[in-house]
Write a protein that binds this DNA or RNA. Structure first.
Lengths: 249, 249
DNA sequence: GATCAACATTGATCCAGGTCAATAAAGTGT
DNA sequence: ACACTTTATTGACCTGGATCAATGTTGATC
């Protein structure tokens, strides 16, 4: 099952990141996906000094939860995370998954308290952006402020698209939309858009899409039978992208 | 059916707003709910000059849609709006409702293009905040930047709570959560939290909550039979708040 | 205040996807 | 390699809420 994964230049760089925790933004492989994009060299140097590069998180380890005090926004450096929001009785909804270069915890700015719980899906690491310092810096670096607003707005867009999925799409459309969104994000990160590893369990996917695990499992089988994709454990290979796009609603 | 509505001081002020389109932020009844909160007097004067107070919108009139060019963020001055996002085949999801002091169109910052369509639910008016000018101003007014981020984050929080509703709650829990959220927002605006008018149709509510109109209708009847609330057309009166809170999930 | 259209309610029936149950793989630690 | 736990698949059956259908109500327009 050790199928060859498409190795791109960026993927090799990402691998390096894991071994250089204090790597400066300037030479970070994620540069073009991350906050510093568009910042001047000396602004970047300043920003670099307030960013804390954390030690790694293990699979299932909690990054933050509603009881944590809100101090920082996190950027995924390597690996992946999920966030969940809980009803009073403990029912949980997986609100999003996060990959390298993506921001976690922005919903905490309002109320100064994390709304959700963030957990690592695999061995992962993050950069910590102290929110107060970020605010101070934004006052003198307009491009930084712009970047932050854009990130918040991007997360809004993604949530609203998920609302459409949850509210109006069939089970099959939900799963296809989800896979295409993953494909898109992997592609942006220099991974293959046609073949990738799911880092989350069937349970996480089902929960995220408002479905039962069994439904997700059956849909995978069904899409495979229809020759639209192939799935072997966590490895997804898209076989007929146009057909999938046409069926995602 | 002209039942007496609870008139609070703020409500009277809100009524005035409708007749003074060019009312300055300083004397606007929405001041404490709106963007200018916490701004210094002279900053406010500057902000005041870039804000355009639009003419009114009629019921069902479109404020913006994905084909409109993104230039401004809107703040509801009076009335109410809904936003919808569309699937490729025309299916629509009502993503949110907006009341005085709330911001519409923030999901357009990323991509510089409105993601959704905004429509007036009744005769309404807005203030227009030109986004580029707002960005310039934020550079010199840290509190303004803070306000904008907080607003974006608040909308994120509200979307994530809706995700929980759509993904994990029963039809009854969805409707109760929705009504309690409305109650809360009316209360913040100086209206009664126990008795209020729904400005949206049953169809809008059903769509927003991922339900059929018939289900919403039956739930209203059912909640009324259980003495938890009373509903007469668009007038909702909450009869047993603790019981509702306990049933919202 | 009559006409028509839009909106809302209620009942009867149906089905997409959930739940329950059994089995099979895949990981994990020793 | 083995035991054990977690995760995934598949089948049989069930149900919450959708859909269909008929009727009632409200509200806009002239």
């Amino acid at each position: 099952m050790t199928q060859a994964r498409v190795i791109t230049p960026l993927f090799e760089d990402l691998a390096k990141v894991e071994h250089h925790h204090q790597l400066a933004c300037q030479s970070c492989a994620l540069y073009r996906l991350c906050l510093p994009l568009g910042l001047h060299r000396d602004d970047l140097t300043k920003l670099d000094q307030i960013i804390k590069r954390s030690a790694g998180y293990k699979r299932h380890q909690i990054l933050f939860e509603p009881s944590s005090t809100f101090k920082t926004i996190f950027v995924v450096r390597s690996g992946s995370f999920k966030t969940t929001i809980s009803a009073t009785d403990g029912r949980e909804q997986v609100t999003n998954f996060y990959f390298p270069g993506e921001f976690i915890g922005m919903d905490a700015i309002y109320q100064q308290r994390y709304l959700s719980t963030a957990r690592a899906l695999e061995a992962s690491s993050v950069c910590e952006l102290p929110y107060e310092r970020l605010q101070e810096f934004s006052a003198t670096i307009p491009e930084l402020q712009n970047q932050l607003m854009t990130r918040l707005s991007k997360e809004l867009s993604s949530d609203k698209n998920l609302l459409l999925s949850l509210g109006k799409k069939t089970a099959q459309e939900k799963l296809i939309s989800f896979l295409l969104s993953l494909s898109q994000r992997f592609s942006e990160r220099g991974y293959s858009s046609m073949s990738f590893q799911l880092t989350m369990s069937r349970g996480d996917i089902a929960n995220h899409l408002g479905l039962a695990i069994e439904t997700v499992s059956r849909l995978f089988t069904q899409l495979q039978d229809q020759q639209l994709l192939s799935i072997q454990g966590k490895e997804v290979t898209i076989l007929d992208l146009p057909a999938l796009k046409q069926r995602c609603g």
